[in-house]
Structures are given as structure tokens and as C-alpha cells.
Design a protein around this nucleic acid. Structure first.
Lengths: 209, 209
DNA sequence: TGTACATCAGTGAACGCGCGTTCACTGATGTAC
DNA sequence: TGTACATCAGTGAACGCGCGTTCACTGATGTAC
């Protein structure tokens, strides 16, 4: 298990992968730089050749987590057949996005919590240009879904404003209340019913009137 | 500022108050037992006469935070005049509850985050009987609000199921996304508009059809 | 009304923990001539 | 094709931090007789 050369060759990626595994098992607080280095078989100091500091490493994991979330959304989008009717199709897609979001949260709680961890955890990470929300894949998918709702005539343009925030808030809140919060005791069966009911209510809130 | 006697007399409450102030300023991670003792002017060891451990102290703060949240809901309920029409009144109350929840989250982010902190923070706290959600004041207020909606005939009984979870998830998610999450950059003015739009969408989701 | 004594509520020193980070260093790589 | 040398990517020891918690203790309180 020793590496062939003194130089690792791909240490940045290896550390990110190890740190991602830590996050998967215990959320952002489990991402410890020394442990990631240990897993890769390298001294802790070596990490500083590739990451500015601890927060920078967490930031890298956070980006990976967002990619995984986007994948989960895509998978759920593809899991149900396309509806011939544009209106029904737009509604189907929104439901799939919500379901993909929640499936990810419950299947990968550690990564989910890391994707949305407080900025305190990534403090010190050197930030480039202040990239907006539009660069985050899951958010773009949500925007497209809502636009399709309007294009299909199933949501009034007046309701379009802040619709991202409404839809996102609901699924995010549900995930948080169940993962970390006072709804953590809800058994899986009830949880599934609640998810269906909540997603339905969101659809109503977006399209009614 | 020295206490009159060797015995403090009310140390448990004093420590809880000091710890609550710490939480107010920095959330659950700022609740450090030694610091709370320091603020009260007592040795760290003394805290162990009144709290089983660190998690127990945080648990006490968590309960205080929930009381403050309930107060915020009550204040907002009383902030707008009662509607004569029962249907309008029930809708008004739901809006006030949502607003009170969000006002509290933004006015007291540290306490809000403590009220909903992960069980990991309160680990070790000796738990009595597993008290259900019904014992938590804010939750009871939500249940009453939804029941009133049905009683006033403005929400169909079919929609009543899991309505708590839908309404709660939405306001909770909005608070989290803005406090800790990717919506933290939203300026206060836009935030207020978003709050109004989201609360409106929830009302639609609850009552439409 | 005194007094002995159990109990309660504090004290202060100390420990271990494991982290992030820095330091001076050495082995490996690649490029100019 | 060799060789000198700058640069890059690692090493290992060490530091400081501040926490939660334990220990043996002492001062204050209250109760039985």
C-alpha cells in the first residue's frame, strides 16, 4: 500500500476523496485534515502544498457534495417517464427535483450537511470571484424547472418571483428537520408519506390559482 | 461583583442565563461550560453540581431558546388585529406564526440555531421520559393554527394530514438557507419580499382547492 | 438554646486530548546550457 | 548526452490551544438531640 514514488502525483485529489469519505461518515465536523492525510498515507504537512488550510479542504468537499446532489437530482429526473403533455411534464420534473433532493439528504446525510454547512467551516478558504448561485448546478436545475412550469402555462408569471426560494426552502427545511432536528424520530414509513404530502403541497402552492 | 456568600444560591439558573447569552452570540458551539462559569464568577467545577455535563448545559439553553421562540410567535400573533371573520382570522394567525418564526430566526440567530441544533450537541444530557413534539410550545401553536384553518372551513380535512410538516419545513428551510446557507448574501430588503412571497405560497398550498 | 455532625455547594490544581499549523529539512524532478 | 542547479513536493518533530472533566479538598448550611 506504499506509493511507488516519493511524490504522490495526485495528492490534491486523493486528499479531497479521503476528506469526502470523512464527510460522508460524519458531516463537516468529521473532516479533519490530519485524518485525511493519514488515510492517504502522507504527512499532515503535505496537505499544505495543495490546500491553504483546513477550511480550504472542507470547501473542496463542499463542492464535491454539491456535484453529488446534482447527480441525485438528475437520477430522479430520469427515473420516471417523460410526460407527453408539457404541463404534466413540467410538474413531473419539479416533483422529481424535490424527491431527488430529499433522497440525497437521507441517503447521504453527511454529504448533504457538508454541502450546506455554515461558512464558518470553510473560513480561510481562498475565494476567487464571488460566484453567484447561478453557478451551482442544483440551483440551475431548479430555475429551469420553474421556468418550464411558466412556459407550460401551469404557473402564473406573477407567482414565478421567489418561487425558487419557496420550493427550495420547503424541501431543505424538511430535510433539516428530519436529519438534525425535532423530526428525527419519525419512522421511515411515515417519513415517506410526509415527503409525498409536502411535495404535493409545494406543487399546489406553485401552480394553484 | 463578588457574591455575598460562599454559596451562590441560584447557580443553576445563573449558569443557564450565562450560557444562553453565549448561545445568543455564537450559537451552540459558543456554549462553553468554562466560559459560562467564568461569567458567573464561579469555578468550572461548580457547574457539575448542577449539570451532568456539557451537553446537559446546552440542553438547558435549548429549552430556553424554544421558550423564546414561542414568545416570538405570541408577539406576532398579537401584532395584527383579530379578524372578525373566522376564516380570515385563521389565515391571519398562520401568517403571523410564520412571520414570528422567521423574525425570531433573524433577530436571534444564535438562539435559533441552538433551538434546532443537532442532538450531538446535547449528548450526555440525562433525558427523562421521551417527551414528544406535543410538549414543545411552538409546535402546539402550529397544530392549533392548522386546526383552526380546518374548523373555519378554509382548509380541507384531506389536506390537514402532514400540514404541520409542510408549513414548518418551509419556514424552517427559509431560515436555514438565509442564516447559514447559500442565501446568506440576500440583502434584507429582498429578504423581506421573499418572506412575504414564501408565506403567501404556504397559505396557498394549505388552503387551495 | 447549644452543639455534633452529615450533607451540600463550592475551590484550585491537574490531566489528557487531538487538533491545526509552523519550522527547518530532504528527496525527487525538470530544465538550461 | 551530461551535468548544475532551481524548484517542487514531500517529511518529522514540535508548539500552543482551550476545552471537558476528575480529584481531593474546604467552607457553609441545616438538622437531631
Amino acid at each position: 500500500m506504499t506509493r511507488p514514488s516519493y511524490h504522490h502525483g495526485d495528492l490534491a485529489n486523493a486528499l479531497t476523496a479521503a476528506a469526502t469519505q470523512l464527510a460522508r461518515e460524519g458531516g463537516p465536523e468529521a473532516v479533519v485534515l490530519r485524518e485525511a492525510a493519514r488515510k492517504v498515507g502522507v504527512s499532515a504537512t503535505a496537505a499544505y502544498r495543495h490546500f491553504a488550510n483546513h477550511g480550504d479542504l472542507i470547501h473542496a468537499v463542499k463542492e464535491v457534495a454539491n456535484e453529488r446532489l446534482a447527480e441525485s437530482l438528475s437520477i430522479e429526473l430520469a427515473a420516471t417517464p417523460v410526460e407527453p403533455d408539457p404541463a404534466a411534464e413540467a410538474v413531473r420534473r419539479m416533483g422529481a427535483l424535490g424527491l431527488g433532493y430529499l433522497r440525497f439528504a437521507f441517503a447521504e446525510p453527511g454529504l448533504f450537511r457538508t454541502a450546506f454547512c455554515s461558512p464558518a467551516w470553510t473560513a480561510g478558504a481562498p475565494q476567487g470571484p464571488p460566484e453567484g448561485l447561478e453557478t451551482v448546478a442544483p440551483y440551475r436545475m431548479l430555475v429551469e424547472g420553474l421556468d418550464a412550469l411558466v412556459a407550460a402555462g401551469v404557473m402564473s408569471p406573477a407567482r414565478r418571483t421567489y418561487a425558487e426560494i419557496f420550493a427550495w426552502s420547503t424541501v431543505h427545511g424538511l430535510a433539516m428537520l428530519i436529519l438534525d432536528g425535532p423530526l428525527s424520530g419519525v419512522p421511515p414509513e411515515i417519513r415517506e408519506q410526509a415527503i409525498a404530502a409536502v411535495l404535493d403541497a409545494v406543487a399546489v402552492g406553485l401552480t394553484a390559482g
